[in-house]
């Protein structure tokens, strides 16, 4: 009986609540497919670092929040169409995106890295452990040169419309063959299937996948930051919503001071990625 009631209610709700006018609450868009930043559990509930952080930020702002699920490729259009008022989806602050939307101050560092399957010829590349593209210098140049040589003729897989795709398309590592996917899950699947020679994403996305799937995914090459990789992950907000931007910045300040961001980062990433 319970099942039937739930069914009928679900159907009625979706049939009749066709047009919903937003109340005084803030709607936050997230992808729900980029663990450990944001993901979904077996009961279909949204979980992850950003989902918890979003709830805390709303508490600090004293506002009610609803978290809205949105596919990555429609994330920014969805914000502009006012489907939600803010984006918290592991979205890095980049100049490219700043042309269209605003960002709050960064709340976490996203470190990008290449991943391959164990035994790949790309293992053991001789590069520094991390490079910052904004700084430049001979270190960065030689590392990029090594990468260009190693990746020549290889297929590198990335999620579509990401900083990782932008970086590969920038020509910094020569002309690799890039394959773009709708979600990071799909990138992971094709990396393990052997369809990709390498994949590029947030390093934690790969370590999380390797741990949960038990597959031999290993990180190679330097960690990337700066340049096309932007300056950390922030809350995306429409250009004209300056008030909301201020309240988010203030709430992030509070969260940082109270150690909330560090606490959640350690819980979800295993290390303090707060900024």
């Amino acid at each position: 009986m319970n099942i039937f009631k739930k069914t009928i209610l679900t159907i009625f709700a979706s049939l009749f609540l066709t047009v919903s006018v937003s109340a005084d609450s803030i709607r936050i868009g997230t992808e729900g497919a980029y663990p450990p930043w944001n993901a979904k559990d077996e009961s279909g509930k949204l979980i992850g670092f950003e989902v918890e952080l979003a709830n805390w930020l709303c508490i600090y702002m004293g506002k009610e929040c609803t978290i809205v699920e949105q596919d990555w490729d429609g994330m920014i259009p969805g914000l502009i169409m006012r489907k939600y008022d803010a984006i918290m989806a592991g979205m890095s602050i980049t100049d490219e995106r700043m042309k269209t939307i605003n960002f709050s101050q960064g709340y976490a560092d996203e470190v990008a890295q290449l991943a391959v399957m164990k035994g790949s010829s790309l293992e053991g590349m001789d590069t520094p452990s991390g490079i910052n593209l904004s700084l430049g210098g001979s270190d960065v140049k030689s590392a990029l040169k090594t990468l260009t040589g190693a990746l020549a003729g290889k297929t590198v897989c990335v999620q579509t419309a990401t900083i990782h795709q932008n970086f590969l398309e920038s020509g910094d590592v020569g002309s690799v063959s890039i394959r773009t996917y709708k979600t990071q899950d799909e990138v992971n699947l094709d990396l393990t299937a052997g369809r990709c020679d390498a994949a590029l994403a947030a390093a934690v996305a790969f370590t999380d996948y390797a741990e949960k799937s038990g597959k031999d995914v290993v990180l190679v090459g330097p960690t990337f930051s700066g340049g096309a990789f932007g300056n950390g992950v922030g809350v995306g907000i429409r250009k004209d919503d300056t008030d909301l931007l201020k309240s988010f910045n203030k709430a992030i300040d509070t969260a940082r001071k109270q150690g909330k961001i560090s606490e959640l980062a350690i819980k979800w990433f295993g290390f303090d990625a707060s900024m």
């Binding site: 490729d73 259009p77 502009i80 269209t100 579509t160 419309a161 394959r179 773009t180 996917y181 709708k182």
Partner: peptide
Amino acid sequence: STVTLLDLTGVAKHIISTTFRP
């Protein structure tokens, strides 16, 4: 376009994800 190919629909989606003019 759902399996990474850049056919007409795939490229259209690709352009949208960078220009945001769907």
